[in-house]
Computed example of a mutant assay.
Amino acid sequence: MDGALLKLTILPFLTSRTFAGGPPSGPPFVAQFNPTELTDSYEVNFQNETKQGDSGEPAKQYYIKPRNFTFELMLDGSGVTSATGFPENLPSTPASVIGQIELFKLTTGYNGKIHRNPYLLLVWGPFFVTSVLESYSINYKIFNSIGLPVRAILSATFREHKDDVLGNLLDNRSSPDVAHAHLTGEGDTLPNVVNEVYRDPGRYIDVARANGLNTVRALETGSEIVMPPVRSA
């Protein structure tokens, strides 16, 4: 197998709904060397309901922030690497370092067609994430005799991005006060599905009306059922 296929690859897209079928909007960035570390940050935000005089507060979950992913990538201009894939001799030319930095900016940077940075697909083996660039920094390590960089570390942080429709399905939201979709399984019936979500099988009439259904028998496996939110009185 071509080793390039195993390298971390970043693909840009103009919209967040073209990840699956649309062509990339620009050149891909393929890491020269795979990162040795990946930081996956997950954070839950809690609603503060502390009143004056309280000694504590309940941990009431408010929302889950998008995950952040941080990579550190080595950029080397020597053309000479060790058996591990990393440079072992001092580099002699800055060409590949500067070129890789400019390619990274071209792939992830501001796009005038959409007046924002592009949506990005990060692919590395089983790692497959839709995201946007949040920040990056470059630590220049070694320079040649005229001050051009010949080795650098690119540290980039990406914020997970989920399209509204895709996000609801991936999150598998099941709260009865949030509209979401349910993918039916084998043997599912509308009353059973409705009871699982709302804890009230009597709501199946509302769900049937929202989906244009006229049956309460077994549903077609793999079909998508819209579960409308519960409206408070």
Results as ranks from 00 to 15, higher is better:
I101N: 00
H115P: 08
Q100L: 02
S96L: 07
T39F: 07
A95N: 13
G21E: 10
R67H: 04
F104D: 07
T84M: 04
G79I: 07
K105Y: 12
N68M: 14
E49A: 10
L73E: 09
N89C: 07
G79V: 09
F46H: 01
S82N: 12
S16E: 05
P58K: 05
T70H: 00
P66V: 06
G79L: 06
P24S: 13
S25F: 11
P87G: 02
L38F: 03
N89V: 08
P27Q: 02
A59F: 01
V97Y: 05
G109H: 07
F19V: 14
S16N: 01
I114A: 10
V30H: 09
L73M: 12
G125V: 12
P91A: 06
P27R: 01
G26W: 01
S41P: 01
T70L: 04
G109P: 03
P23E: 14
A83E: 13
L120G: 05
P24K: 14
E102V: 10
F69Y: 08
Q61P: 01
L75N: 08
Y119E: 13
P35D: 15
N34E: 08
P12N: 13
K113P: 01
I10V: 15
L90P: 05
R116T: 01
P24A: 14
A20S: 15
N45Q: 06
L38W: 06
F127T: 15
G56H: 14
L122T: 14
P126L: 11
D40V: 11
E37N: 08
P35T: 15
L90E: 14
G21R: 11
I98N: 01
F86G: 08
R67I: 06
S25N: 12
Q100G: 00
Y119C: 11
P58E: 07
V123I: 08
T108Q: 08
D40I: 06
A95Q: 13
N68T: 15
A20I: 11
E37C: 05
I10F: 09
E37P: 04
P12D: 10
T108L: 09
L73V: 10
Q61Y: 07
N111D: 15
I10D: 11
V80K: 04
F33M: 05
F128K: 10
N34A: 03
I101E: 09
P118E: 08
P94Y: 01
F104H: 15
N111C: 05
R67A: 04
G85R: 03
R67E: 03
E102C: 04
P27S: 00
T81K: 00
E43D: 02
P23D: 04
T18K: 02
D40Q: 04
S25H: 05
F29I: 11
T39C: 07
G112I: 12
P28N: 02
E49C: 12
R17V: 09
S92W: 02
L120S: 06
E88W: 09
V44T: 15
